Simulated assay, not measured.
Amino acid sequence: MRQAGRWRTSSYSGNSGNCVEVGRVGGGAAVRDTKDRGAGYFTATGGQWSAFVAAVKGGRYDG
C-alpha cells in the first residue's frame, strides 16, 4: 500500500474533533479519521473522489 502524503483537514471542520483528513495517493485520494490516525485510511481513484466531492457540493448527503 502506498503512503499518502500531505494530509489536510477541511477548514469547515472547526474544533469539534469529528474530522477527517484527506491526502493524495497515486492518482487519487486517501481519507482517514483524525481521532484514530493509526487505524489506517481508505483510498479512492481520482474519478471516485471527484464524483464524491460533486455529490457533497450538490447537497446529496444533506440531512
Rank of each mutant, 00 (worst) to 15 (best):
G27W: 08
D36C: 09
S13C: 15
A4N: 05
G63R: 15
A51H: 02
Q3E: 11
R8F: 09
F52W: 07
G26S: 14
V56N: 00
S50V: 07
W7V: 13
G14M: 09
V53F: 04
S13L: 06
R37I: 13
Y12V: 13
A51M: 06
V56H: 00
G38M: 06
N15E: 07
E21N: 12
S16H: 08
R6K: 13
R60H: 09
S10T: 13
Q3K: 15
V22R: 09
T45L: 06
R60D: 00
S13N: 08
Y41H: 15
V56S: 00
S13A: 15
T43K: 10
S10P: 08
G27S: 14
S16R: 12
A29P: 07
S50A: 11
R32M: 10
V25Q: 08
A54W: 01
A51G: 09
A54M: 01
A44V: 14
K57E: 04
V31Y: 01
R8L: 11
A39T: 08
A55K: 10
A29K: 15
G14D: 00
V20P: 02
G63D: 06
R2D: 01
R32T: 09
A51I: 06
V20S: 02
A51D: 02
G46H: 03
Y41L: 12
Y41V: 10
V31L: 15
D36N: 13
A51L: 08
C19V: 01
W49Y: 08
Y12D: 07
G17E: 00
R8W: 04
S16Q: 09
W7C: 10
G27L: 14
G47D: 06
G14Y: 00
S10E: 05
M1S: 05
S50K: 11
A29F: 13
A29D: 06
G28Q: 10
Q48D: 03
A4I: 09
D33A: 12
A54N: 10
G23Q: 13
R2I: 13
W49V: 10
M1N: 06
A55W: 04
K57L: 06
T9W: 05
S16E: 04
V20L: 14
S13I: 07
W7K: 06
R6L: 13
V22F: 12
T9D: 05
V31C: 05
D36I: 13
D62K: 15
F42C: 13
D62V: 15
A51S: 11
W49K: 07
S11R: 15
G28S: 13
V53I: 15
K57I: 01
G23K: 14
Q48G: 10
A44W: 03
W7E: 09
S11M: 12
D36Y: 03
S50Y: 00
R37G: 05
A55P: 04
